[in-house]
Amino acid sequence: MPRRSYDHYCAASRALDVIGDRWSLLVVRELLSGPRRYSDLFADLPGISTDVLATRLKDLERDGILTRHRIGPRATSAYELTVDGAALRPVLDALSAWGTPALGERRPTDAVRAHWLALPLGRAIGEQIDKGTVTVRIGETVFHVVVDGAEITHQDGPAPGPAIDLVLDLATANAVANGTLALADAGPDAQWSS
């Protein structure tokens, strides 16, 4: 299928030609924390059809945003961001910051995954420390945030080596992520430990 284009001689337009399709940036969001298998992406993108996911993955691979490689004895495909794909982190972080005030109360129809809170929690952690690594545990979900001055990234799993552990329940993590609760005021459900 030929690529749709805005046909505007504009940098924003050209960027949207590549990542402006519905679900594309959310696929990138899922890959910001590391490689994922197709089944993991499908499970963590509620509402996407298998056809749309397959199409977005092919398009993003064709456009150099992600790469696919085979892993394990069953040769399962895993998808991973390229350097160009990882360069979209500030875009997603800016969208996350901009969208935080719009979160409001969670609606009964809203899906939620704890790792979706990584971007806003990373910002909250970045306000607490200038440099360091923090492992975040929300129920069974574990990821770590690396703060190095203004740069904040996150990866799946606990931080290698010594790190600060932050243990939150989902409600507290959500309150911190949506800006209704400061991380410093997260109470007994937030545990900072070295």
Rank of each mutant, 00 (worst) to 15 (best):
97 A>C: 05
13 S>N: 03
83 V>S: 10
164 I>M: 10
32 L>Y: 00
181 L>Y: 06
181 L>G: 03
41 L>E: 03
128 Q>W: 13
3 R>N: 08
4 R>C: 00
103 L>K: 04
4 R>F: 15
36 R>M: 07
41 L>R: 02
23 W>P: 07
184 A>S: 14
100 T>K: 02
32 L>F: 05
140 E>N: 15
137 R>V: 10
13 S>M: 08
140 E>H: 08
88 L>E: 00
46 P>N: 03
166 L>G: 07
51 D>L: 14
140 E>F: 06
154 H>G: 05
50 T>P: 05
63 D>S: 09
173 A>H: 14
36 R>D: 02
58 K>F: 12
151 E>Y: 06
140 E>A: 15
187 G>H: 00
41 L>V: 08
139 G>M: 00
154 H>I: 02
143 F>E: 00
29 R>P: 01
72 G>F: 11
189 D>P: 00
192 W>A: 04
8 H>N: 05
150 A>S: 04
153 T>F: 01
61 E>V: 13
11 A>P: 05
134 V>G: 02
47 G>V: 02
46 P>C: 11
112 V>W: 08
82 T>L: 14
35 P>D: 06
153 T>V: 09
127 E>H: 07
103 L>T: 00
16 L>V: 06
137 R>M: 01
86 A>V: 00
57 L>M: 07
98 W>T: 08
48 I>E: 05
67 T>A: 13
148 D>M: 03
96 S>N: 09
177 A>F: 15
140 E>D: 15
